[in-house]
Design a protein around this nucleic acid. Sequence first.
DNA 1: GCGACAG
DNA 2: ATCTTGTCGC
Length: 225
Amino acid sequence: MTTFPMPADEAEARALQDVLRERVVLDESGPPPGTGHVTGVDVAYDEERDVVVAAAVVLDAATLDVVDRSTARGKVTFPYVPGLLAFREIPAVLAALEALTADPGLVVCDGYGRAHPRRFGLASHLGVLTGLPVIGVAKNPFTFRYGQPGPHRGDFSPLLDGEEEVGRALRTQEGTRPVFVSVGHRTGLDNACAHTLALARDFRQPETTRRADALCRAALREAVA
DNA sequence: GCGACAG
DNA sequence: ATCTTGTCGC
């Protein structure tokens, strides 16, 4: 079981990110798209009742069929603070991942990895804690700049923090806004985009995220019913 | 100081 | 994230 040190305050959380960042592995390209397993993780909240539910859904990367799934319920332990999302989401996500029977393969999460003020977003954090290859696919650009990618599926443009490419704005479907891909752990950016494109075969968001989102919402309704 | 700000 | 019906468009 992976333990998660919960910081007492925001300053402590930022300091922890600065320490853990040193453990991120960026020189591996990661598993090739279309092979093995890909796992989506997501979290839903009921702030009123102080309930958080995470879901993990394992897909066959070639067919996008569901191979395994799990949920984990817990209590909200950290507020949403931009830049500190991981401290709010990871405890429940770790529990859901540990409840899986199948090998997770590559993990895809909502949010960012390197595209983060301190280069240590949710995807990086989850990767360091689990040792798994992880990428982040976000729906919004956070604070970063980017040029509009071309109109076709697969077109992309760099997500920039100053001059540094911290991720990419990737168009997964024509006629929809791009998604924002960044590397978390043990995966290269080209490969992360290739995975995202393969997983977003039918919709703007990767199938992993859609499945995990639907599952944690359903489990939350169940939990508070 | 003010605004912006993954989920 | 979450609150929420109908509705414009393909």
